[in-house]
């Protein structure tokens, strides 16, 4: 999927026009273990790149998900409230977190593509 971009924090972003859908990668969900709760931001919230956008929790760990780009939250994945396990079973599909209105598409440039991310993960051992 050519429109997928990845961050070194193991987040993915799928660009759909001027918005982007954000989630965590398969590698990230595996590191976390069974996800039990996802704390999502309010729709409408303005995020700057690097802001805490969401928190994902497993039984023994909690991890912040940072906004990979500037933008306002357009939509959040309400399904995660009742089924946080979607993050484990379908991290790049039904386990998405939120959708952002992209305000600066230039911020996508520094991110990895799928092959680059695969190499990056391989490098982590």
């Amino acid at each position: 999927m050519s429109d997928m971009k990845y961050t070194t924090d193991h987040e993915w972003i799928r660009v759909e026009g001027d918005s982007g859908v954000i989630g965590i990668t398969d590698y990230a969900q595996e590191q976390l273990g069974d996800v039990v709760f996802v704390d999502l931001p309010d729709v409408g919230k303005n995020l700057s790149k690097g802001d805490e956008a969401a928190v994902v929790e497993s039984v023994k760990a909690a991890a912040e998900v940072y906004a990979p780009l500037d933008g306002a939250v357009l939509e959040i994945n309400e399904a995660l409230t009742d089924a946080p396990g979607l993050v484990n079973t379908d991290p790049v599909g039904g386990g998405w977190f939120l959708k952002l209105q992209i305000s600066d598409p230039g911020q996508l440039d520094g991110m990895m593509d799928e092959a680059g991310y695969a190499d990056y993960v391989k490098g982590l051992g």
């Binding site: 497993s58 039984v59 946080p84």
Partner: peptide
């Protein structure tokens, strides 16, 4: 025996 902590937290 081992308890299901995932179910407990979800």
């Amino acid at each position: 025996r081992r308890l299901d902590e995932t179910a407990a937290a979800r």
